[in-house]
Design a binder for these strands. Structure first.
Length: 418
RNA sequence: GUGAGUGUAGCUCAAUGGUUAGAGCACUGGACUGUGGCUCCAGGGGUUGUGGGUUCGAGUCCCAUCACUCACCCCA
């Protein structure tokens, strides 16, 4: 085969596209109930935007971005995530001047040059949400509530919700020192990856999977014990709200987010049916990012849903099915074919999905194709029928049949109980 | 970037180193000359991922390479 998709990207074919449409439509409906409006930002941005927001030393920036020079020599990057672009747009268009909170959602492809595996692709799709201008933990809880509502609506309840607070620029550095202190007592017992993490991002040692490391960090200091008064209160209020909504969650003080810009609240929605990449949705608060981009100090919080992962769960639950046309015309002879061709257009205009068999073949094989296509109703038109001024119909589901006046096709459909 | 596994028809898979690489499903047609599903019959569809090597002979063994899958790393 000469041409195929490049590594880590994929075609999405029907009937799976039905599932994608359902997910997107449900997200739009639920999110708008919560006051969110769609924002569409470009897939291309200046590289600098992502380097500054995600963090220079993160893996995403260091080795996973699709970056290239445009024809004028500027460094351009295919977005690896959505938040940076939305923040840029928020500042660029002066949206901070509008009444807070400003609430946005977006749906679209993201790109990261990673080795593909289950639930991880080089082009993947996210539904993301951002709220600007309110620092209250009520918003954080509202977001969790919205995710829950969304997942419930598409039929995925019983996913686990994990939350954490990673503090702010006041308390986190202090905790970081304590943690480094603790780790230094046993660096040489840690795995190779953790030796590296110890140097680069000590917090990451916390969610190492190696048993010996797990054993060692069991006694490590916990971020939640080192939060400053402000962060502590924020985290408690957040939980109070979750309880008020009767949302089941667990605190995971070892949950570390990969992007540098997070502050205070972080959370993940995971499923144990997904393999190693088990996060369906994840997000958190980023109170300093807008300011660091040159905007006014603006607290913000958001999350992203991984669509491919969602689809995996969903298609196990209810395998996607093609929906056939309501009506299928089977014809014999040129005159009948022309009659059907015109009817086809009329009834489609009236809102009925309809097909006809353009191939000149036996009645039997046309019937067979009508069945394969999943049609509900077949109209049979031949010379006999036309000369009598009628068409025959057959209901493929109820196995009933009859005749109707050939002028009355549309009326028949309008009264038909599909 | 690291490791392991797998590459044969559109899909899922067979084929001890030995004839012309098969089956099920799917597709097309027929049995039923104007009636779907069930059944039966027939047909189309393959550079066995690619390139080397070993051998009288390779889908099968060896090497390389590419792709896919899963895991690590990291993350939605």
């Amino acid at each position: 085969m000469k041409y195929k998709t490049i590594k880590g990207v994929q075609d999405i074919l029907p009937p799976e596209t039905f599932l994608w449409q359902e997910v997107e439509q449900t997200a739009k409906e639920i999110f708008s109930l919560y006051g969110f409006k769609e924002i569409r930002t470009p897939i291309l941005e200046f590289t600098e935007l992502f380097v500054r927001s995600i963090g220079e030393t993160t893996d995403i920036v260091e080795k996973e971005m699709y970056t290239f020079q445009d024809r004028a020599g500027r460094s351009i990057t295919l977005r690896p995530e959505g938040t940076a672009s939305v923040v840029r747009a928020y500042i660029q268009h002066g949206l901070s001047q509008l009444p807070a909170p400003q609430k946005f959602y977006y749906i679209g492809p993201m790109f990261r040059y990673e080795r593909p595996q289950k639930g991880r692709y080089r082009q993947f799709h996210q539904i993301g949400v951002e709220v600007f201008g309110v620092d209250s933990p009520d918003v954080d809880a509202e977001l969790i509530d919205m995710i829950r509502a969304f997942l419930q609506r598409i039929g995925l309840d019983s996913l686990s919700i994990e939350i954490n607070s990673i503090g702010c620029e006041q308390c986190r550095p202090f905790y970081r020192e304590r943690l480094i202190e603790f780790l230094s007592s046993g660096v040489d017992t840690l795995c190779n990856d953790c030796q590296r993490r110890y140097q680069k991002n000590p917090l990451r040692v916390l969610d190492c999977k190696v048993p010996t490391c797990k054993e060692f960090i069991k006694d490590a200091p916990r971020i939640t014990d080192f939060l400053c008064d402000g962060c502590k209160e924020h985290f408690q209020k957040f939980q109070q709200r979750l309880k008020a909504l009767e949302i089941q969650y667990s605190i995971n003080p070892e949950m570390v987010r990969g992007l540098d810009y997070y502050t205070r609240t972080t959370f993940e929605i995971t499923s144990n049916a997904l393999g190693a990449q088990n996060a369906v949705a994840a997000g958190g608060r980023y109170d300093r990012l807008v300011e660091s981009f040159g905007g006014p100090p603006t607290p913000a919080v958001g999350f992203a849903i991984g669509m491919e992962r969602l689809i995996v769960l969903l298609s196990e639950l209810k395998p996607p099915r093609d929906k056939g046309p309501m009506v299928y015309f089977v014809t014999l002879g040129e005159e009948a074919s022309e009659f059907a061709f015109k009817e086809l257009s009329h009834i489609r205009s009236a809102g009925f999905s309809a097909e006809m068999d353009f191939r000149r073949s036996s009645l039997k094989s046309q019937m067979r194709r009508a069945d394969k296509a999943g049609a509900r109703l077949v109209f049979i038109v031949g010379e006999d029928e036309l000369s009598k001024g009628i068409v025959k119909y057959r209901d493929l589901r109820e196995h009933t049949e009859g005749e109707i006046d050939k002028q009355g096709v549309l009326d028949f459909l309008k009264n038909f109980n599909f």
